[in-house]
Design a protein around this nucleic acid. Structure first.
Length: 650
RNA sequence: GGGCGGGUAGCCUAGCAAGGAUAGGGCGCAAGCCUCCUAAGCUUGUGGUCGUGGGUUCAAAUCCCACCCCGCCCGCCA
């Protein structure tokens, strides 16, 4: 007999025993919301426990412990199968001990038979789900701050897919807006050069310098104007900003002297760079051919670089959605038109405003959206005075488009955009897409900071993901070189790549997304406990044992697995399906990381304490081999879910 | 000012939605373990006002209220 969820079988049996005992004692069980079982704090207390006796004795004078004892008495012992015994304990708990002779067999056999599918319990209702993630603006290389996004997004996508949903991974290419116009402007000024290095790095340099020079130019003009009217306070403010940018310019000049000089000269020729940038932006949104060609070309360069980096990290996409396409196809205008027809959009001083708060009132959304009683959602500007649209406006159209293709949408977007995401959701209600709104999830995550300051791509202050991956792989190579000199060179490199990338992914996925992460090389280059390499190493160890054994476990006697550690391992394996379900339903990839680490931990302890291959009698050796095989499978499945490869040697 | 998120040992972190028994880990520090299946490992020790104060409860890190600290947002930026 096998089961896709051995722990659920155990729970089921406990629940039946409990229900029958309650019935026998004629206890009113309507008092109980549901039968929940928890894991006792100490292994020897048993594997599952319930605290219902505390609730049941609320109305009566009976002590919880007395009731627990009576219930245990009333249980029909002849019906025990994977439950070995039930005991009343503490102040009134009922503890259930698993019958490991059977439970080990059930669990290990289930894992080994289901293999790559073990633990990945399918959802009752498979859905079409779009996970939009990464969506880094095509202006500069992806930096570690932004890298948290694809790593989390990819893990979530993998988990949902394993849950049986049809998942589409979408990258939203944000090519509309001032920023792309700035880079295109710089690129044009340079005479549209072909990249001489990794294209996103190439574009990133041009962008940073151009944006800095343009900013200085703009501030200088503002300063002039402020001086004319002697606005003292403003002058001070502008001067401060200007100083800031000048120091950035100084840094950039040091770093890239030639490029800096060229751009300084070329941009200097322009009386008003700002004007050209605005024209470019407007022309692009209008779909004018030259602007289209120029901006698409620059963006494409960047995306090429992104694809290279992300695919190296194991992150792939099903669709690249260009924001500009939504504008040119008329979808943005169409959605805008619909919004205008609602009573929630008004023209204020030449701009179009979406009054989100009115929608909240009209549709009674306050509670649904989790808003405080007297909080008024700020209104959102949809269209500028010059007729161009804003980011969130286009995102509304994009969301409508996405819901044409999927029943559920998950947007992996930094939590600093929470308000915009809220307004977007409210706009869906206003448009009459309430069901879509309810199936739209903002998967918010916190920032990655550098010690001292925020990473700023505008200022060129960032550590790129490429750098981090390179460094991690280099470190991993050194380790492999040291520890496994016998491996052939190409194997060493392959392992180093898997381990290095894994380490980075793990570091970014391990922490609760809601918490901020301070970047440190120590965190990312952790190769010891609580890291991907640690789990990968454990997996390789398991593989190594199986390889050395050079035999299949012919006649495993699971009843010989009597050691506490062995039973703890079995129980941990049995827990995996539940962990997976919970992690996926609550979108918490960090639970998977934590689970894998805990399992690896237990396995290493076991490895150190007992021998597998040479264990006597052979039936015990076989049982342990099967256990190791099951551990190997679950470690691999867990790692896969968070996009980390499990090497067989390292 | 308002909103959102975070606050758990020197540092990092789990647990909080569904309240339960002794708050789990890791790093660091100290001391040990390779003639034995991979030492990226294992063992032992060290370290806690769970931000503060109230409340609810048989039971609170977890729920409620107030306050404090940190971050983010409240743009005709994205």
């Amino acid at each position: 007999m096998i089961s896709e969820n051995p722990l659920a079988e155990l729970k089921k049996e406990c629940e039946i025993l409990l229900r029958e005992a309650l019935k026998k004692l004629q206890i009113e069980k309507s008092l109980i919301k549901q039968f929940t079982f928890e894991k006792p704090p100490v292994w020897d207390f048993g594997q599952l426990a319930t605290s219902i006796c505390f609730e049941l004795t609320k109305q009566t004078a009976e002590k919880p412990l007395t009731l627990a004892q009576r219930l245990v008495q009333a249980m029909d012992k002849s019906k025990f199968s994977i439950v070995k015994e039930a005991t009343a304990a503490g102040a009134g708990y009922i503890n259930f001990h698993a019958n490991f002779e059977q439970f080990s067999a059930l669990t290990i056999e289930s894992v080994r038979q289901l293999d790559a599918d073990y633990g990945l319990v399918k959802a009752e209702k498979p859905l079409k789900v779009i996970v939009e993630h990464t969506s880094v603006n095509p202006l500069h290389p992806i930096h570690v701050g932004q890298a948290r996004n694809p790593i989390l997004g990819d893990a979530v996508a993998r988990m949902l897919s394993a849950r049986g949903h049809t998942v589409f991974r979408h990258y939203y290419v944000d090519d509309v807006g001032r920023q792309t116009a700035v880079i295109a402007y710089g690129y044009e000024k340079l005479g549209k050069p072909k990249p001489t290095e990794k294209p996103d790095h190439f574009i990133g340099k041009i962008y940073t310098i151009t944006s800095c020079l343009v900013e200085i130019n703009r501030l200088k003009r503002e300063l002039e104007r402020a001086k004319m009217v002697s606005a003292e306070e403003e002058i001070l403010k502008i001067n401060r900003e200007l100083d800031d940018w000048m120091s950035i310019a100084f840094e950039l000049k040091q770093k890239h002297p030639e490029l800096f000089e060229t751009l300084l000269q070329k941009i200097g020729e322009d009386l008003d760079p700002e004007k050209r940038i605005n024209e470019l932006n407007k022309a692009y949104e209008a779909g004018e051919e030259n602007a289209k060609k120029l901006i698409r070309e620059v963006s494409q360069f960047c995306l090429e670089g992104f694809k290279e980096t992300l695919s190296r990290a194991g992150v792939l996409y099903d669709s690249w959605d260009w924001e500009s396409d939504l504008v040119w196809s008329g979808l943005v205008a169409e959605v805008l038109q619909k919004l205008k027809q609602t009573p929630y959009v008004s023209v204020l001083g030449g701009v179009l405003e979406f009054e989100a708060e009115k929608v909240v009132g009209a549709f009674d959304l306050r509670e649904k959206l989790g808003l405080r009683k007297d909080y008024a959602v700020p209104s959102l500007t949809l269209v500028r005075a010059d007729g161009t649209t804003l980011y969130t406006t286009r995102d509304i159209a994009y969301t409508v488009w996405k819901f044409g293709k999927a029943e559920k949408c998950i947007n992996v977007i930094g939590m600093e955009q929470s308000l915009a995401q809220l307004q977007l959701k409210i706009a869906l209600y206003a448009l009459g897409y309430g069901r879509h709104a309810e199936n739209l999830t903002h998967f918010a995550y916190n920032l990655v900071t550098l010690p001292g300051y925020k990473m700023s791509s505008r200022r060129g202050r960032y550590i790129t993901l490429d750098e981090v991956l390179d460094e991690a792989v280099k470190r991993a190579y050194e380790e492999v070189y040291k520890r496994s000199p016998q491996l052939p060179e190409h194997e060493k490199q392959k392992v180093a790549e898997i381990v290095g990338i894994g380490a980075v992914r793990y570091a970014l996925v391990e922490v609760d997304p809601a918490k901020p992460v301070e970047f440190s090389w120590d965190r990312v280059l952790n190769f010891e406990k609580n890291s991907a390499p640690y789990i990968q190493y454990s997996h390789a160890r398991a593989c190594s044992i199986l390889l050395k054994a050079a035999r299949k476990p012919e006649k495993p006697a699971y009843n010989l697995l009597k050691e506490k550690l062995e039973q703890e391992l079995v129980f941990a394996l049995a827990e995996f399906p539940n962990t997976f379900i919970e992690a996926t339903e609550t979108l918490k990839p960090n639970l998977i990381a934590e689970y894998a680490n805990t399992l690896a931990d237990k396995f290493n302890t076991f490895y150190n304490a007992f021998s597998v291959i040479k264990a006597e009698p052979p039936e015990l050796s076989d049982a342990r081999l099967a256990l190791v095989d099951a551990i190997r499978i679950v470690l691999k499945n867990a790692l896969n879910l968070i996009g980390i490869t499990a090497p067989e040697r390292m």
